[in-house]
């Protein structure tokens, strides 16, 4: 079976952080259709961080956060939308640039400000726009070394168990 083009939409209430766990588990299992366990866990991490950011900073209230997971020829594409406050694009641009600390100076260690940095580290492409009253994020993660989803699916089918 060639999964390229498959898509599924997931929704959670924008005021219910406890639902993020369910969403993360769903995303990890979806990503396992394309990636190995390590890369699938990275996709879960990125989406949990993104949805946490939405709930905590965009504050969409009781409107739904919508996540659309799509299998692309090179990996996965994820579209995330909420109806909360817009993000200052400079914050996304700057995320991770100043991630520096002295690991021996315990009291100065950062306890926050990691979410967007982590998303940018584990996903290959991250884009954001505010459109028609909605925050719209697009995340892409690719298979390593230019492999394609179709060839990975074929290889999996042909591998003796």
């Amino acid at each position: 079976m060639n999964p390229v083009g498959a898509r599924i939409e997931l929704r959670i209430p924008g005021n219910h952080p406890e639902s993020v766990r369910l969403l993360g588990a769903c995303v990890r299992n979806l990503a396992l259709m394309v990636f190995d366990a390590q890369l699938a866990a990275e996709v879960e991490l990125a989406m949990v961080e993104a949805v946490n950011n939405s709930i905590l900073h965009a504050k969409p209230g009781d409107s739904d956060i919508r996540l659309t997971f799509m299998v692309s020829p090179r990996g996965v594409e994820i579209d995330l939308q909420d109806e909360g406050r817009p993000l200052d694009p400079d914050i996304l641009e700057a995320a991770g640039r100043k991630w520096d600390f002295d690991p021996t100076d315990i009291q100065s260690l950062p306890v926050g400000g990691m979410g967007l940095m982590l998303i940018k580290k584990v996903m290959n492409e991250v884009s954001y726009r505010f459109e028609n009253g909605r925050n719209r994020w697009r995340f892409s993660k690719f298979l390593p070394s230019g492999a394609s989803v179709q060839s990975e699916a074929t290889r999996t089918v042909n591998t003796p168990s």
Binding site: L45, V48, L109, P110, G112
Partner: peptide
Amino acid sequence: FMDSSGLGALVS
């Protein structure tokens, strides 16, 4: 599974 909030709690 641990996210950045969990890591922040460990650092605290």
